[in-house]
Design a protein around this nucleic acid. Structure first.
Length: 972
DNA sequence: AACCCTACTTAGCATTTACGAA
DNA sequence: TTCGTAAATGCTAAGTAGGGTT
C-alpha cells in the first residue's frame, strides 16, 4: 500500500526508458513545458542541417459540420453545440444513480492537495489513465481524430452535433512512434509533489488536509460574516437574485452606456472610414489653437527632463502629479478624456541588408536573395540560439512556408552564377552565417565602452523624447508602448498553429490615430499616410493597428503609472471589494443550484463553484484552428477532469499561455456528483464538460448580483481576500528582523501566486545555487562546532553542563563532509593569498617598484598549509584550541549566537529561494493583490515599502501608497 | 444565440540594469 | 573594479469581457 503510493508519486518519466538519441529530452520534469519535445532537446546548437525536422505535420483534418435542429432531449438551449451533450434536465433517477455509485465518506471539500497525498483509487469514469497518460492526446493538440471515428459519431443520431463549426487540428508528430511516452506527456510546469509549498509539513496527509479545509472554511465564514455586516451597515438591501428571470430590475451596464453620446459608430467604422479621414485633418489644424500647448510642428512640447542638471531628489518636482484619488469622482467615466494630444509612434529602424559575404546557404550553396527575403531569413538566423522556437517543427514549417513565399514573390533564390535554386527542403538551409553575423554584432554592441553606451542611450532617449509623454486633459502623462512592434517571427506559445509565421512590418497605412479634435495629429512618415485619424474620447488608446498573423489589435496606451490606468486599477480592486458584500449570497445560491433540476443551472452553479474555490479562469471559447488549445472553466473538456471517489477531482489541463494547471482537490459532494453527470456517456474525450454554459451566460448571471461582476472578479477577490486574511493571521511577534518580515510577506504572496497558478521556468542554475547555499550553511555549522570545542578547551567542565550532545555535529554535517570542507577552506585560503599577492605586485609595478619574489608567495602560502594542518588535527582529535585574543566562554557563546543568526537568515533565504523556484510572485503582486494591503502591512510592520514594490511598482501604485497615508486600519 | 469586433487586463519570457561578492 | 547573478523592466502574446449585428 505504502509502496504503491510511493510509486504513484514518482514522476512517470523516471520509470521510462531513455529517449532515443535524436530526441534527447531533458529529464528534469520541472523544466518541461507545454510545448513538447523539440525544445530543450539537445545541448548543441541546432544548425539547420542537423535538426532534421520531421516531416511536417499533416494538414489538420476538418471535422465535418453537422447541423441539428435542436436538442434531442427537449428544447432547452445549448450553450455549446459541438460534441456530445448532456440532457437539458437531470432526472431524479440520474441524480439518485450518481448518489449510489458514490462510495465512502468524502474528505473535507474545497481544498487543494496539489502537493499532498495521492489517493490510489482508480478513476470512476475512465480506464486507468493518469494525468500524464491523458496528456498524450491532449499534448498533441487533440485526440487523434480519424474519419472512421467521426463516421461512427455521426451515425449516432440521438446526439446533437455541431451547429457551430468545430475543427480539430491534429498535429502528428511524424516520429512519434519512437518517442518515449514521457517526453510527449509533459505538458507544462508541474510543482513537485513533495514540496510543501504552503509551508506546512506535507509528511502527514490527513491533518494537513483537515487543516487546510478548516482554514478555507474559516476564511469563507469570515467572508460571509463580513458581507452581512457590510450590508447591515450600508442599509441598502442588496437585491435578491433568484434566477435569470429577475434580472430586469438590475440593468447596470446598459443604462450607463445609454446616456453617453455614442461614438461607437466611429470606433467601429475605422475600417470603412479610412477615406474621409484626410479631409477633417485640415480643419483640425485650424482648431488646434484652442490649447496653447500644441507646438507648431505638431509635436507636443514636453521638457524631456533629462535630469542632467537637477540630478537630485527634486528633479521630479516640476511634474506635479495629478492626485486623482483625492479628486472628486467623475460622474460619467465612459468619457475618458476631453482633450488629448500626442505624437504618435516610433517606427522600428529600416532593415539593414547583410554584407555581401554573409549569406543563407542551401545545401552549402550561398544564396542571393531579394532584400525582403533576406530580411525574413535573417529573422530566423538571428534567433538560432532560441532552440525552443527554432527546433519546433510547427515553427519551422510556418517559417519555411513564409520564407518560400517571399522568395518566390521577389525573384527567387539564386546561386553565385545567377542560377535559380529551388528551396525544397528546410533541413538543407543553413542560417549559421547569418547567425554568426548578428551574434558578432551583438558582441560588438556589448563591448562598447560605457561612455559610448551612455552616449548612444542619450541619443536614443532624445530621439524618443517626444513620444514618451502625451497631454491628456492638459496633464502630462506617460505613454506605455510607443514603439511599433518590429517585424519578426511570431512566437506563439504552446502548440500555437501559427507559431513561426512572419510578422510583417507595420506600415503607417495600417495605423489608426486616436487624438483630440483640438490637437494637431502627428504627421505620418514622409510619403505615407495614416489609415485613419479619429477622435474617440471613450477609448484610452492613442494609436492602433492590426497585426497580420491573427488579425489581433495592437494598441498604444498609457503607461501603468498614468492616471487612467491607475484609476481603472483602483476601480478593479474596489469592485473586488464590493464582491465581499455579495459573496455569501452568491455562495448560498450556487450551493442551492448545485442541485438544480435544469442542466444549465446546475452547470452554471458548478462552474461558479470551481471559479470561486479554485480560482479558475472563465474559459472563453477559442478558435481551435488558429490558436493553441488551452482552456478555462467553461471550456474544460472531458479529459481535463478526472474523478476519484468519493470526492476528489483532478484537474489537468493547459491554461492561459499553455501553462499547465494541475491540481488535485476535494470538492463538495454535490459538485463531484455533478461533474460525474456532466461527463456521463455518451460524452467522451474532446467533449465539453459544461456543454450548456458559456462565459457570456455565466457573466450575465453574475451581473445580477452586482453590476460589473464577472468571473475574473473572483480571481481578484480571492487573491486579495486571501492575502488580506493571511497577513492578518501573521504572528504578532515583536522582534522580527526585517528579513523575517519580508519573508512572511513573501510567503503570503506565494500562497496567492499558487492559488492563481502563476508559474515560471526554473532558472538553469537553480540546483547549483541551492547546493551552494546549503554548503554555506553547513560551513557555518562547522564553525559552530569548532567554537563549541573551543569552549570545551577553555573549560572542560562545560561538557557536563551542556551535555555531550551539545558538542556533536549539527544536522547536515558529518566527517566525510568536513574533510571535503576543510579541503575547500584551505583551497579558498590559497586562492585568496594568491590573489592578494598578485594584486600587491600589480600595485608595486604601477608605482614603479619591483615585484615581490615568487619565494614570498610560497612563504605566504604556508599559512594555508598551517591552516590545513590545524583543521585536520582538530578534526582527528576532536579538540579545538581556543582562538582569538582574550578568549572566554562568554565571548564564544556570543559568537555562537551570531552564527545562529546567520544560519537562520541563510536558511530563510534558502527556503525562500526553493519555494520560489517555480512560482512567480510578480504577477499576483502586479495584478491581483490590492496594493493597499501591502502598504498597510508595510506600515504596520515598519518595513519600507521599497522592500515590496520596485520603483515602477511604486509608481504604478502611487494611488495606493498615498491614499492609505493616514489610514492604518484600512481593510480590503 | 451565434458571431464578430473592439478594448482592455493579465501573463511569462527576454533583455537590460542594478547589485553584491570577489 | 569586474564579474556574474538577481531583480527590474520591456515586450508582446493571450486572456477576459462586453457591445453590436444578424
Amino acid at each position: 500500500m505504502v509502496g504503491s503510493r510511493l510509486l504513484s508519486r514518482l514522476p512517470l518519466l523516471q520509470l521510462l526508458p531513455r529517449p532515443s538519441p535524436i530526441h534527447q529530452f531533458s529529464l528534469c520534469s520541472s523544466t518541461l513545458r507545454a510545448q513538447s519535445s523539440w525544445h530543450r532537446s539537445t545541448p548543441q546548437r541546432a544548425t539547420a542541417q542537423r535538426s532534421h525536422p520531421p516531416p511536417f505535420p499533416f494538414k489538420p483534418f476538418k471535422i465535418f459540420k453537422f447541423k441539428m435542429a435542436s436538442d434531442s432531449d427537449d428544447d432547452m438551449p445549448l450553450a455549446r453545440t459541438n460534441g456530445r451533450v448532456s440532457n437539458a434536465h437531470i432526472s431524479k433517477s440520474v441524480d439518485k444513480a450518481m448518489d449510489e455509485s458514490n462510495g465512502s465518506k468524502p474528505a473535507p471539500a474545497g481544498i487543494s492537495i496539489r502537493n499532498g497525498p495521492i489517493v490510489d483509487e482508480m478513476d470512476v469514469d475512465e480506464p486507468a489513465t493518469n494525468g500524464h497518460a491523458k496528456r498524450k492526446s491532449r499534448g498533441s493538440t487533440s485526440k487523434p481524430v480519424n474519419y472512421n471515428q467521426q463516421g461512427s459519431e455521426s451515425e449516432d443520431d440521438d446526439i446533437p452535433l455541431a451547429k457551430r463549426q468545430r475543427t480539430t487540428t491534429k498535429v502528428e508528430e511524424s516520429d512519434s512512434d519512437d518517442e518515449p511516452l514521457a517526453t510527449k506527456k509533459q505538458p507544462g510546469k508541474l510543482p513537485p509533489k513533495n514540496t510543501a509549498i504552503l509551508g506546512e509539513s506535507s509528511d502527514d496527509d490527513e491533518p494537513l488536509n483537515a487543516k487546510l479545509a478548516k482554514k478555507k472554511a474559516t476564511i469563507e465564514k469570515k467572508a460571509a460574516k463580513e458581507a452581512k455586516t457590510i450590508r447591515a451597515k450600508d442599509k441598502k438591501p442588496a437585491k435578491k437574485v433568484k434566477d435569470e428571470s429577475s434580472e430586469e430590475d438590475v440593468k447596470p451596464k446598459a443604462k450607463r452606456k445609454a446616456n453617453g453620446t455614442t461614438t461607437a459608430k466611429k470606433a467601429n467604422g475605422v475600417k470603412k472610414e479610412e477615406s474621409d479621414s484626410d479631409a477633417p485633418l485640415a480643419k483640425k489644424g485650424a482648431a488646434a489653437k484652442g490649447k496653447g500647448k500644441a507646438a507648431t510642428n505638431g509635436k507636443v512640447k514636453v521638457e524631456a527632463s533629462p535630469k542632467k542638471g537637477a540630478k537630485k531628489g527634486e528633479s521630479e518636482e516640476a511634474e506635479e502629479v495629478y492626485r486623482w484619488w483625492d479628486a472628486p469622482k467623475k460622474e460619467d467615466d465612459s468619457i475618458k478624456w476631453e482633450t488629448l494630444q500626442h505624437n504618435g509612434v516610433v517606427f522600428p529602424p529600416e532593415y539593414e541588408p547583410l554584407p555581401k559575404n554573409v549569406k543563407l546557404l542551401y545545401a552549402g550553396t550561398p544564396l542571393t536573395l531579394s532584400i525582403e527575403a533576406e530580411e525574413v531569413a535573417g529573422f530566423f538566423g538571428a534567433m538560432l540560439n532560441s532552440t525552443h522556437n527554432v527546433e519546433n517543427p510547427t515553427f519551422q514549417k510556418n517559417f519555411f512556408a513564409d520564407l518560400k513565399e517571399i522568395v518566390k514573390k521577389t525573384g527567387g533564390a539564386k546561386d553565385k552564377d545567377g542560377n535559380k535554386v529551388d528551396l525544397k527542403d528546410f533541413s538543407k538551409l543553413d542560417f549559421k552565417p547569418i547567425f554568426n553575423y548578428y551574434d558578432a554584432k551583438n558582441q560588438e554592441k556589448k563591448a562598447r565602452s560605457s561612455a559610448e553606451k551612455k552616449a548612444d542611450k542619450a541619443a536614443k532617449d532624445e530621439m524618443e523624447a517626444p513620444y514618451v509623454h502625451c497631454i491628456w486633459d492638459g496633464r502630462k502623462e506617460q505613454v506605455g508602448n510607443f514603439r511599433v512592434e518590429p517585424p519578426g517571427l511570431f512566437r506563439g506559445r504552446g502548440e500555437h498553429p501559427k507559431t513561426g509565421k512572419v510578422k510583417q512590418r507595420v506600415l503607417p497605412e495600417q495605423i489608426t490615430i486616436n487624438i483630440g479634435k483640438e490637437a494637431i495629429p502627428p504627421a505620418p512618415p514622409e510619403g505615407h499616410k495614416w489609415k485613419a485619424i479619429q477622435h474617440d474620447n471613450k477609448a484610452t488608446w492613442l494609436v492602433m493597428w492590426q497585426e497580420n498573423i491573427n488579425g489581433a489589435y495592437k494598441y498604444v496606451m498609457l503607461a501603468a503609472k498614468s492616471s487612467i490606468k491607475g484609476q481603472s486599477d483602483y476601480k478593479k480592486f474596489e469592485k473586488a471589494r464590493q464582491l465581499k458584500e455579495h459573496i455569501d449570497r452568491i455562495r448560498k445560491d450556487y450551493e442551492r443550484d448545485l442541485k438544480a433540476e435544469l442542466m444549465a443551472d446546475r452547470q452554471r452553479a458548478t462552474a461558479v463553484y470551481l471559479i470561486d474555490k479554485f480560482a479558475l479562469r472563465a474559459g472563453n471559447e477559442k478558435d481551435s484552428e488558429n490558436e493553441a488549445e488551452t482552456v478555462g472553466c467553461c471550456s474544460l473538456k472531458f479529459e481535463h477532469v478526472t474523478l476519484k471517489p468519493p470526492n476528489t477531482v483532478v484537474f489537468d489541463f493547459l491554461g492561459k499561455d499553455s501553462i499547465r494547471f494541475y491540481d488535485e482537490v476535494t470538492v463538495h459532494e454535490q459538485v463531484f456528483k455533478n461533474l460525474k453527470i456532466f461527463k456521463k456517456a455518451p460524452k467522451k474525450e474532446g467533449d465539453d464538460i459544461f456543454d450548456r454554459l458559456n462565459t457570456t451566460q455565466l457573466n450575465k448571471h453574475l451581473t445580477n448580483y452586482m453590476p460589473g461582476l464577472s468571473a475574473k472578479v473572483f480571481r481578484t477577490y480571492n487573491a486579495s481576500f486571501t492575502m488580506s486574511s493571511l497577513l492578518k493571521e501573521l504572528p504578532k511577534k515583536a522582534n522580527l528582523s526585517m528579513q523575517e518580515k519580508i519573508k512572511l510577506y513573501n510567503d503570503c504572496n506565494r500562497k496567492v501566486a499558487i492559488l492563481c497558478n502563476h508559474k515560471r521556468t526554473i532558472g538553469a542554475g537553480h540546483e547549483a545555487q541551492m547546493e551552494k547555499m546549503t554548503d554555506r550553511i553547513k560551513g557555518l555549522r562547522y564553525q559552530k562546532w569548532r567554537i563549541k570545542h573551543m569552549i570545551l578547551d577553555l573549560d572542560p567542565k562545560q561538557k557536563k553542563k551542556k551535555g555531550a550532545e551539545w558538542f556533536e555535529y549539527e544536522e547536515g554535517i558529518d566527517d566525510e563532509w568536513i574533510v571535503e570542507h576543510i579541503a575547500f577552506l584551505v583551497q579558498e585560503q590559497r586562492t585568496k593569498i594568491e590573489k592578494k599577492f598578485a594584486k600587491e605586485n600589480e600595485k608595486l609595478v604601477a608605482d614603479g617598484q619591483k615585484e615581490m619574489k615568487a619565494k614570498e608567495l610560497t612563504d605566504r602560502l604556508k599559512e594555508a598549509d598551517v591552516l590545513e594542518k590545524k583543521l585536520k588535527k582538530e578534526h582527528k582529535s576532536k579538540k579545538v584550541e581556543a582562538e582569538g585574543k582574550g578568549p572566554s566562554v562568554e565571548k564564544f557563546e556570543a559568537n555562537l549566537k551570531k552564527l545562529d543568526e546567520r544560519i537562520a537568515t541563510m536558511n530563510l533565504q534558502a527556503e525562500d529561494r526553493e519555494g520560489n523556484k517555480e512560482v512567480a510572485l510578480g504577477t499576483s503582486k502586479i495584478n491581483y493583490i490590492d496594493p493597499r494591503l501591502t502598504v498597510v502591512f508595510s506600515k504596520k510592520f515598519d518595513v519600507p515599502i521599497e522592500k515590496f514594490f520596485s520603483k515602477t511598482l511604486r509608481e504604478k501604485f502611487t494611488w495606493a501608497i498615498e491614499s492609505i497615508e493616514d489610514e492604518d486600519d484600512w481593510e480590503f
